[in-house]
Amino acid sequence: MSFYATIQTDTIADMRNNQNTENIIIEKKNITISKYDRVNLGFTQLYQYRRFILIFAIREIKLQYSQTILGILWSIITPLTGLLIYSLFFTKIILLNTGGIPYPVFVLAGLAAWYYFTYLVGSGGSSVIQAQSIIKKIYFPKLVLPLSKAVVGLVNLVIILALLIIYMLITGYFPCLNIIFLPVVILFNMITGLSLGIWLSALTIRYRDFHHIIPYTIGFGIWLTPVFYPVSILPESYQFFMFFNPMAAVAEGYRWALAGTPFPSINYLFSIIPVLILLAGGLYYFRKIEGKMVDMV
């Protein structure tokens, strides 16, 4: 018998029928609770509780800008100042061969990728610990927590990208047609971040050590990723190592989608396949300890 095994959703249909009656039935379901079974990855529950992803994301976003005078404007001001600094500072002082695209565009595309990745690893990784007071009192599939972080990060990412595109339009460097593939790149960025974020969110519960590992890794990871520099400045023999870094593929992907640089090398498959394996393993591990999370935090 699987954990929360039979969830008969005669429900959603029921719910619609009952909407006009006095008592609205939210979810009519038969639940059986027993010890959890490892085969079931729990996507049924996740689907049932999908609105929790948004609920948590909205809470987070509201919280970020509550009691600030400028409110949501801050999410524009922060990347905007970054944009200004990079465009003024780097174009005058550091000159790198970026394959013909303006350096601010080059850096910001990389930074956007890196921002979203670190948000998913950092906030996603501590999401379960952060919500410990809630998960001790209210039931929902815990995977909701890292996923809601993905939504929050996505909102900020979209703002950064929108600013970048506006900047490109202003400076006369028009985005190319590849931009229609931008969502695919964002999705891959999300998957890369989540593959680590889900692992970490589960591991930090048991071993707080990972709490310290995260900022450390993120701190020097940016220098192993072509954010500030193009891969081409590396000596030919070292470029190979980049293919093991999935974030290199993501950064290159953003540049390809926005600025029309050459499509990332097929060699990045060296990193992409491990990411997918990592994601599947993370989901499995997360699910495995989900039932015990509350006892452990």
Partner: peptide, 20 residues
Amino acid sequence: RITEPTSGTVEITGSFASVL
């Protein structure tokens, strides 16, 4: 459903809410 039992089952029929 917040923690899982070591053994045994709980069956609930109908909609359900808990305030701990």
